[in-house]
């Protein structure tokens, strides 16, 4: 299949998802409020910590850097919230998945096409205002060109990792009907080990070790370390990107495999 045909085939999924996203503007507001509150809490907490320490924190984050980290962590999480998990699980539960099976498209790819506009809308319409608000209120660390240049591919990879995780969670709908519980567990565990709550460098040794062997570090901690220059030498920077790419590929493969297994299990009632 050549690229233009693929584009033509999957573009409708993207535009339909974009339209429904813009239809429900109140969810955008909710996203903005959640991110603003979460950032506010974290920032106030860590400001108090810095006030009580004269020698800075381990991991080498100074206050503007940590503020930037906490803020951008929420924004990355916002753009990774692509709704793929709830939509796939919902289709499985309602039985609509049968219709999707009839379409001559690759289902995971169609889901990716539908998830991408959600990410972009969240990042621009929700993330950008929150970023501007805090940039106005608090001193942030100015990014370097190198940082930005490394951050962009890393953020793109984080979208793929986030998509893979969400698709796998959504496909869990084939195994359990209580997908709501699975999603709650995912939300807190992933957020924590991604470094969305606290940079991995500030975690106690054993927790940091666990975080480093999980794919989730590539969602937040990896991209932000690259942006803020928290690595020793180009080799380590490349290492972060390579590990991310490897996890992205592994998760995509796992999702494709899970999808193939899941389709064999499909049972749809009525007709």
């Amino acid at each position: 299949m050549t690229t233009p045909t693929a584009l033509r085939r999957y573009a409708p999924f993207a535009s339909a998802s974009l339209q429904s996203m813009l239809q429900y503007r109140s969810t955008l507001l909710i996203g903005a409020v959640t991110a603003t509150t979460a950032v506010g809490l974290q920032v106030f907490l860590w400001r108090a910590v810095y006030a009580g320490r004269s020698d800075g924190l381990p991991g080498g984050y100074d206050l503007p850097e940590l503020t930037t980290y906490v803020l951008l962590a929420q924004l990355l999480a916002l753009s990774q919230a692509n709704r793929v998990d709830e939509e796939v699980a919902g289709e499985v539960q309602r039985g609509d998945i049968a219709t999707s099976l009839l379409r001559p498209v690759n289902y995971p790819l169609a889901r990716f096409a539908a998830g991408l506009p959600v990410s972009l809308v969240n990042a621009t319409l929700v993330g950008l205002p929150v970023l501007l608000l805090y940039a106005f209120l608090l001193p942030l660390a100015a990014p370097t060109w190198t940082g930005l240049l490394l951050f962009l591919p890393s953020a793109a990879l984080s979208l793929v990792i986030g998509f893979g995780v969400n698709l796998l969670v959504g496909l869990a709908g084939f195994v359990t009907t209580n997908i709501w519980g699975v999603r709650i567990v995912k939300d807190s565990v992933v957020a924590f080990f991604a470094g969305q709550v606290v940079p991995i460098a500030l975690m106690p040794g054993p927790l940091a070790a666990v975080a480093h062997v999980m794919p989730f570090q590539g969602l937040v901690d990896g991209p932000l370390r690259l942006l803020l220059g928290h690595y020793t030498g180009p080799a380590q920077a490349a290492g972060i990107l390579i590990v991310q790419a490897a996890w992205a590929a592994a998760l995509a493969a796992a999702a494709a495999l899970a999808w193939r297994k899941a389709v064999r299990r499909v049972e749809v009632l009525g007709g």
Binding site: Q42, L45, W46, A48, V49, G52, R53, L57, P58, F192, V197, V198, L202, M203, P204, L207
Partner: peptide, 10 residues
Amino acid sequence: AVVGMVFRQV
């Protein structure tokens, strides 16, 4: 966990 990590520092 966050509270614990905060008080590891101060």
